[in-house]
Design a binder for these strands. Structure first.
Lengths: 194, 194
DNA sequence: CTATTTTTCGAACGAACGTTCGATTTACTA
DNA sequence: TAGTAAATCGAACGTTCGTTCGAAAAATAG
């Protein structure tokens, strides 16, 4: 039972967070000024500090929310999928879906992974590692190799997936399902003629 | 016939460039101050501006040199390799070799791709596109699919290769040849049991 | 309507930034 | 060795940065 006040507060907070993601995605964390974020969020400079105690905490809020969502949604999709290949497909599709629906946040998560430090960094790292473990497990179910080779194959997949923000064009690559399918196909069978 | 003066100048310049790469790789382009670069390069703050007319030009020099080297070395290796699979192996190995031998520069190239603008950006973009075309052609020689699928497969490969700076540990992943081999194997045949 | 709490704001702070410039030191040349 | 050119330096410039603070405004509660 959230009060009306709390709801309004959270709406405002996430609207500012969206603005922050947009500005940081464009200019980078160091390049983005709190003043720019404030302007984009239609709030005064000092108003930002009513919602966050520092610029760092703002970045943390973005990354924490994004990674938590990513992990939660993946868990849900894996719960009712048994076949190893379908589970892998779920991993890839979940990643792409999150990307197209949250481009700015995705970019901020991938590109500003090391812009945090201290407790904020550690906290996000923990969620990130949980996500990696989830994916690694699914990869291992298909890939019958040593643990270290499974690690590398997982990193191979992550790299290919995370690079997407460098080239993706919503107009040209409109069909995400098809993209997921091709990604799965290449990762499963490679590019060799068979 | 370079004079002794010119040689000394170039030595100093590339030593400063190395220092700059190290600092920018660690703190990011916006996060790295010219003062930090100067200190790491054992030169005064204003001394930097004897070698570069701006911070932007310094970043450009790093990226231009790195990408040019990457392209030149790949061309050389492709010249005396005929078999499509061996050519693909050359692409992957060349990328990894450049990475381990120039970790800081590599990171600056991948992570600060969009930190340049204007003529500097355009110039680096051109070299980057040349590199992409080279790799895309080799991928196409193996992958018998449509042009757009070849594009995606190439981006798939690039992502997996460029992500390496996020996880590579020189102590744990000492054997680059083996790494190249595994990358080739996964990209060619996928992770499926065969 | 009044009192109280939540939200926003303007102004200012010291610090750090990229860049400039004239002077000084170093290295080479004639 | 004297003179010239290359290389380095210290000090300062105007800006922009993240953050703070007390007052004003808006929204809620009594």
């Amino acid at each position: 039972m959230p009060t009306q006040r709390q709801e309004k507060y959270e709406k405002r907070l996430s609207s500012i967070l969206r603005a922050a993601s947009k500005v940081i995605a464009k200019d980078g964390y160091d390049g983005a000024s709190v003043r720019d974020v404030a302007a984009k969020g239609k709030i005064g400079l000092s108003g930002i500090y009513y919602y966050f105690k520092s610029k760092d905490e703002m970045l943390f809020a973005i990354q924490h929310h994004a990674f938590s969502t990513l992990v939660r949604q993946l868990k849900e999709r894996l719960q009712d999928t048994a076949s190893p290949e379908e589970r892998l497909k779920a991993v890839i599709d979940n990643h792409f879906q999150f990307f197209v629906n949250n481009m700015d946040e995705f970019r901020v998560c991938v590109h500003e992974m090391e812009s945090l430090s201290g407790k904020y960094y550690k906290s996000v790292l923990k969620t990130r590692q949980e996500y990696f473990s989830l994916v690694r497990k699914v990869v291992g179910e298909v890939y019958g190799r040593s643990p270290s080779e499974t690690d590398l194959a997982t990193l191979f997949l992550f790299g290919s997936l995370n690079w997407v923000y460098m080239w993706f064009d919503p107009e040209k690559n409109a069909d995400i399902d098809e993209l997921s399918d091709q990604w799965l196909r290449v990762f499963l069978n490679g590019i060799n003629k068979t």
